[in-house]
Amino acid sequence: MSFLRVRDLTVTFSRPGKPPVRAVDGVSFDVASGQTVGIVGESGSGKSVTSLAVMRLLPARNVRVTGSIMLGDQELLTLPARQMRDVRGRDVAMIFQDPMTSLNPVVTVGRQLVEVIVRHDRKSTTAARHDAIALLDRVGIPDPVRRLREYPHQLSGGMRQRVMIAMAIACRPRLLIADEPTTALDVTIQAQILDLLRDLVEESGSALVMITHDLGVVAGLCEQVHVMYSGRIVESAPAAGLFARPAHPYTDGLLRSIPRIDDDHHGRLHTIRGSVRDVVAWEHGCAFQPRCDHAVDACLGGPPPVLDLSDGPPRQVRCPRPMNQPAPAPGTDRREVSA
């Protein structure tokens, strides 16, 4: 009963005079209603492009999106533009990374909020204003009546992100996509915004897709996690399982690069060698192979297999040699889902 069902999503950017780039390469995932799902990856892994593709907000020119994005029983990829505009804000809403630039600088906070409410709820401006005050209050903005009349530049970064969240939840969407909502904020405010998001999602029962490079955010918020690398999901697992026993060497590397306060040997922080540019095309092997400490010959020569490791909740890894796994019982082979 997944609410959002993404299947084989591929986004190709064509560049004049250069070979096209597949920023997202056959990504599939599900989001059940009310579920919080994290999509983790570093810059350029395709996580933001995935979220923009779901919202159908990628530019039309030089971009090709294929696959399937089912929201409820609607296929978003073939939905006419007008209907897609109705979906945005009403069924799915997005929270962006930079609250400093994501609000219209010449329009008051109130008018921007009222605009969204009037757009989808077909209310009078007066009724919408009442809603707007309640919303600002709900996202923790003190003195909402006065704040409504203020311009974005009169608010702090954290306040602006609260306003963005208020706009996103204004029409009670069943799915929220948050694209690095705390990256541009101070650490103390990050925690508050995450708390707010968690509360709102619990209260409203809407699903949340959290796009982030911060595994700490995922640990505190998400039930299911997908790790992306070079346009593909390399590991999908319930958050607890992922942190306890990362199966993909990339996930393992990410987890080991987090500074730990209880680390007793004060050595250098672990880094993943090389850079995200050192990739192998997925057709020819594992894209992470050049940076992987556990690479073997089997990693090259063809696309790595996707193994199903689940012994309960869904868990998959795109690696021929998953780590931290109990040895398979003799005679039984791990199920290979696809190549």
Partner: peptide
Amino acid sequence: AADYVLAARSLGISRAG
């Protein structure tokens, strides 16, 4: 191409709006 235009589009605001 500004962020706030993308944000407005993500909320379903019409083209004229």
